Amino acid sequence: MTKLIGLYPGTFDPLTLGHVDIVERAVKLVDELVIGVAINRDKSPLFSLEERVAMVEQEMARISKASGVPITVKPFETLLMKFAEEVKANIIVRGLRAVSDFEYEFQMVGMNQALNDEIETVFLMADARYQSIASRLVKEIARLDGDISSFVPDHAAAALRAKFSK
């Protein structure tokens, strides 16, 4: 039987509880999970790549231990399907919050299948508690000194407060 390796890509700027929810559910579907932290220069991330990788690694260590599923965090700056091939992923895991997410993801799946039709994409609907969470909104709330504790893990909240207290 083929080992199922999932790849959950994202910018994770910052890691949110919505991301954590998707990971906690994805580990129920795969034998191993790779979290791909994207270097996306178009998005001008608040956190450096190293900070984002460290933030994700901290939370993934907890989830990996609780689930028994190995989780690896790796940065990437290449075509998603090329990265998926490099990490030997069988499936791409994507979270959906709203119809607008679906429209974008639908186009991406078509393009990705044209590049490699051996790698499937699996969509997980965000839990209702997390459907409104978007990293860009969390950053805005943090910048304006709002309470972000219900949107991000504690260590991510501390990192955001530190960024905006400078």
Results as ranks from 00 to 15, higher is better:
1 M>F: 12
3 K>Q: 14
4 L>W: 06
5 I>N: 02
6 G>C: 06
7 L>V: 10
8 Y>S: 08
9 P>W: 07
11 T>G: 13
14 P>H: 12
15 L>H: 04
16 T>K: 01
22 I>E: 01
22 I>H: 01
26 A>Q: 07
26 A>N: 09
27 V>R: 01
29 L>C: 05
29 L>P: 00
30 V>I: 15
30 V>L: 13
31 D>C: 06
31 D>R: 09
32 E>C: 09
33 L>A: 03
37 V>P: 00
39 I>K: 15
40 N>L: 14
40 N>S: 15
40 N>I: 12
41 R>S: 15
41 R>T: 14
41 R>P: 06
42 D>P: 00
44 S>K: 15
46 L>H: 08
47 F>H: 05
48 S>G: 11
48 S>R: 10
50 E>G: 06
50 E>S: 15
51 E>S: 10
51 E>V: 08
51 E>C: 10
54 A>V: 00
57 E>Y: 03
62 R>C: 01
62 R>A: 12
64 S>G: 11
64 S>V: 00
64 S>F: 00
65 K>T: 06
66 A>Q: 11
67 S>I: 05
67 S>E: 11
69 V>W: 02
69 V>P: 02
71 I>F: 02
71 I>K: 00
74 K>Q: 13
74 K>A: 11
75 P>W: 12
75 P>E: 15
75 P>H: 14
76 F>Q: 09
76 F>M: 09
76 F>R: 11
78 T>M: 15
78 T>Q: 15
80 L>D: 02
81 M>R: 04
83 F>M: 08
84 A>E: 02
84 A>G: 07
84 A>I: 06
85 E>D: 14
85 E>Q: 15
87 V>C: 07
87 V>A: 06
89 A>F: 06
93 V>P: 00
93 V>F: 07
93 V>S: 01
93 V>E: 03
96 L>R: 00
97 R>K: 09
97 R>A: 04
98 A>F: 07
98 A>E: 11
99 V>R: 10
100 S>D: 09
100 S>T: 11
105 E>T: 03
106 F>H: 09
106 F>C: 04
107 Q>Y: 05
109 V>C: 04
110 G>N: 15
110 G>M: 12
112 N>H: 08
113 Q>L: 13
115 L>P: 01
119 I>A: 14
120 E>L: 08
123 F>W: 14
124 L>E: 09
125 M>Q: 13
125 M>G: 07
125 M>S: 13
127 D>Q: 11
129 R>L: 08
130 Y>R: 04
131 Q>I: 08
132 S>H: 14
132 S>N: 11
135 S>I: 05
135 S>Y: 05
138 V>H: 04
138 V>C: 06
141 I>K: 09
142 A>K: 02
144 L>N: 13
145 D>V: 01
146 G>R: 13
146 G>W: 13
146 G>A: 13
147 D>G: 04
148 I>Y: 03
150 S>P: 00
151 F>I: 03
154 D>N: 10
154 D>H: 09
155 H>Q: 10
155 H>E: 13
156 A>K: 02
156 A>M: 03
156 A>V: 08
158 A>H: 12
159 A>W: 00
161 R>G: 05
162 A>T: 08
165 S>E: 12
165 S>C: 05
166 K>R: 13
